[in-house]
Simulated assay, not measured.
Amino acid sequence: MPQRSRSALLVLADGRFPAGGHAHSGGAEAAVRAGRLRDAADLAAFCRGRLHTAGLTAAGLAAAAALGHDPAGLDAAADARTPSPALRATSRRLGRQLLRAARATWPGPELDALARVFPRGTHQPVVLGATARAAGLAPEDAAHCAAYETVSGPATAAVRLLSLDPFQATAVLARLAPETDAVAARATAAAHQGVDALPAASSPLLDITAEQHAAWPVRLFAS
């Protein structure tokens, strides 16, 4: 990979990239309140489950977008794979924020066209893949970003929600690295086969708790 592409990948995957993800816990806040996420061991289990379900699905969509598949078809595919209305709204909100940041960082006609076609926003993994494409990155880079985001968000949130040692949270992510790589590779392979072959792994408990979380009058994270 050329050095500039490697640097672009680091920028896109950086948690400080202004895409709005810092305001979302990826379901961790609801899991903490329910007593299912209490320590680093629970965080590892939560992130592993999220990686192989929501992470795999998001990585496939991102890789497909980076390959240049039709955004409208990918938007419909993302809708079909996101049964929770709350999570669909969150995904589109994050997509809008990411697109704003991406157009300022890597301006180009494809991102401008995406903004015109979806004035109310498309799903975040679709925008992520289009952003990776605009940045000169490969589909597997987009898949890695998407997969990593699905576990890094809950890990960061757990530090705030549980006062968890950040060293422990980072260790969870490091130990999941081989599985994250495998998920990204599987998602990219599926994306090369077309939209109909994209993963549709489900996580019903995340869908249910997302709906509950959205109804809370007071919460630390938006989702």
Rank of each mutant, 00 (worst) to 15 (best):
Gln97Phe: 00
Leu98Cys: 02
Leu98His: 12
Leu99Thr: 09
Leu99Asn: 10
Ala101Met: 06
Ala101Glu: 10
Ala102Ser: 13
Ala102Tyr: 03
Ala102Ile: 10
Ala102Arg: 06
Arg103His: 01
Arg103Tyr: 00
Arg103Gln: 12
Thr105His: 11
Trp106Asn: 09
Pro107Gly: 10
Pro107Ile: 08
Gly108Ser: 11
Gly108Ile: 09
Gly108Ala: 13
Gly108Trp: 02
Pro109Cys: 07
Glu110Cys: 02
Glu110Asp: 14
Leu111Asp: 03
Leu111Ala: 04
Leu111Phe: 07
Asp112His: 11
Ala113Gly: 01
Ala113Glu: 10
Leu114Pro: 05
Leu114Arg: 06
Ala115Pro: 04
Arg116Gln: 14
Arg116Tyr: 01
Val117Asp: 13
Val117Glu: 14
Phe118Asn: 02
Pro119Glu: 10
Pro119Val: 12
Gly121Leu: 13
His123Thr: 03
His123Ile: 07
His123Asn: 13
His123Phe: 13
Gln124Gly: 02
Gln124Cys: 07
Gln124Met: 08
Pro125Ser: 14
Val127Glu: 04
Val127Phe: 02
Val127Gly: 03
Val127Thr: 12
Leu128Ser: 11
Ala130Ile: 02
Ala132Met: 09
Ala132Asp: 03
Ala132His: 06
Arg133Lys: 14
Ala134Arg: 08
Ala134Gln: 10
Ala135Trp: 04
Leu137Trp: 03
Leu137Thr: 12
Leu137Pro: 12
Pro139Gly: 09
Glu140Leu: 08
Glu140Tyr: 00
Asp141Ile: 05
Ala142Leu: 08
Ala142Pro: 03
Ala143Phe: 00
His144Tyr: 04
His144Ser: 09
His144Ala: 14
Cys145Ser: 13
Ala147Thr: 09
Ala147Tyr: 07
Tyr148Asp: 12
Tyr148Arg: 15
